[in-house]
Every structure is written in C-alpha cells, then in structure tokens.
Amino acid sequence: MATKLIKGNTAVVIGALYAGSDCFFGYPITPASEILHEASRFYPPLGRKFLQAESEEASINMCYGAAAAGHRVFTASSGPGISLMQEGVSYLAGAELPTVIVDIMRAGPGLGNIGPEQSDYNQVVKGGGHGNYKNIVLAPNSVQEMCDYTMLAFELAFKWRTPVYVLADGVLGQMIEPFTFPEKAIAPVIDKTWAVNGNAETRQNLVTSIFLDFAQLEEFNNRLQVKYADIERTETRCEQQNTDDADIILVAYGISSRIAKTAMDNARRQGLKVGLFRPQTLFPFPKKQINALADKNVTFIAVEMSNGQLADDLRLAISCRRPVELVNRLGGNLVTLDQVMNKIKAVAGK
C-alpha cells in the first residue's frame, strides 16, 4: 500500500490514469485548473493524450469524439464552464456515450467568485441540458474518494454508457490528505459493439442522438428511463453514522458532510442524539435508505453550501413526511460548526 500526501485535484488525475483514461480535454477555470495542470504533467509521459481546448464547449465535444471512439476520456471544470458544457452533456446522454466530468464547484451565479459552493447541484444532478436525461453523480468527501470515485465514475460510465459526474467543491480540490494509491491499473479494451473506432470491426457502427420518428424517439426516451430506474436500483450509495437511535439526522454531501460529522461528534458529546446521512450518489439519490429513516420520528437538517437544492431533493425523496430544516451558507463561505450546532440545539429544544 503506497501512501502519500496528495491534493484533492491531483487525486482526480491519479484516479483517471489508473482507471485507464487515455484522453483529457479541458479549459482553465479556478478552482478546477489544477486538474488541467496535473493532466498536462502526467498524461503525455505515458503517451496519453492531453489537450487544452479553446473553450468548455470544445472540451466536452472533444470528449464526445473520444468517447464515441470508445476511449476513456474525461474533463474537469467549475460552475461557468459546466454551464457551457450542458449542450454537450445532453448529446452525450442522447448518444449514450460514457464520459467522466469532474465539477469542482465554485460560487455563482454569473462569474460569482472562486470560493467553494455546492450550487451546481441542480444543473448537474437534474440533467442540466435539454431532454429527459440524467447523469450519474458521485459525491466524494475526501482526497481518497476524489481518486476512488473518479475510478468508479469510469466504471459506471462504461457499464451504463452514460455521462458520470464527480461533483466536488473548491475545498475538496484544494485540501491535502494522506492518500493510498490504487491497487490496480486498468488497461481498457474498446467495446466494438458500439464504438466508432476507425477500424474494420466498427465500420458499421453509428453514434447519433437523432430519432426523426416521434414513436421511435419516445421508445428511446422510455428506454432511457428504464436505464435510470435500473441505475437507481443497483448503484445507490450512501454512508450512515449514528442514525439508528438519532432524533436529528444531518444530511450532507461533499465537504459539508465533513463539517456535519464534526457537528455530530460535538452534539453526541453533549448527549444529543444526532446522526449523519451522507449520499455518496446524488443521482441516484439514496431514496430507500432515507425513507427507512423517515419511518421514525426524526427531524432532518440539510447542511449545504447552496440555497436548499439538497433540502428540496430530500423533501421530495421522503415525500415531505418529516420536517427538513436547512443550514447553509452561500457566496464562497463554508457552513460553520457554530451554525450547525445552533440549529441542532434549536431543533432539540435546548
């Protein structure tokens, strides 16, 4: 087990390389640029392909090309760049192409600032572009998971032939933690059943998202929904701590879940029965697991760096059966420990 201190953004690139990614296309944007830098440093010495694109529209379309050829490609960006990519992501979903997109969220709207936020939740988790599609969304909360989830993202992208996001934020990108390198390095094999790889075996293949015939397009859309239902059934991941006897359950992903964990530990020390529910997949949202908790008399507190985007999904997931409180900060600020503690105490009536 090789362990080193590694920065979150670097861990993403390490994960991609060990997962057999051979193409990276990206455009600079803080706080995701280090992924671009690290890719430019580590892809070429291995003969793997790195290119700084002219825009995020170009990056995502370069991804579309490499993915259509069956290669393991990824890009990384942040809010404004992700907004620009949405057309391309819709095409990826429509053409059922596997691509990994890493979003190191920053504060918006507009140019906003480069501080951390979680405000891309809706545009990433709900699809974001036009059409009835969804993306698989993985939410790491440590440097180790930045790597591990990037590797998982490639696996899922190819298993389901769909775009997969790794949704992180400026803090996770910037922080350094001990990190254990992957055990395996994957040498990918091109799937000749669908890829268009410029060879005899794939000459008859076609990648497209057009269905002129309304009935056919409806059929295709319905098939996509079946795929998403299968994904919900099999790929949902979450982590629970102290939820068994909890009266109050903090719900948070990414860096907010780390802050929530500290708050939970503090609250437990003060005798308050507080638990933590961390969705590791945001789509599929861990509905079954959260509903099992909602069967009990609990209050949920969503801890997020966005305007209730997670809280809304939580309410939807539990059909508003339990109160959902919100603790949040916007504008590049982290939720503070005091904020969460105060809310916990208010809910507990202390």
């Binding site: 090309g65 490499a66 050829a69 268009v196 790889n197 990648v207 497209t208 057009i210």
Partner: peptide, 23 residues
C-alpha cells in the same frame, strides 16, 4: 464509421476522435 454531432462542434469532436484513435 459514423458520428453525428451538435451544431458547429464537428471540428472539436473530430479533434477528440483523431487524438484518441489517430485514424
């Protein structure tokens, strides 16, 4: 082999295919 792409993005997609496959 055939790929259909978004409006105006053919050179970017072509770049992706070319860099990935060298075909």
């Amino acid at each position: 082999g055939n790929i259909q792409v978004a409006h105006g993005r053919a050179p970017a997609v072509a770049t992706g295919v070319s860099r990935a496959t060298d075909k």
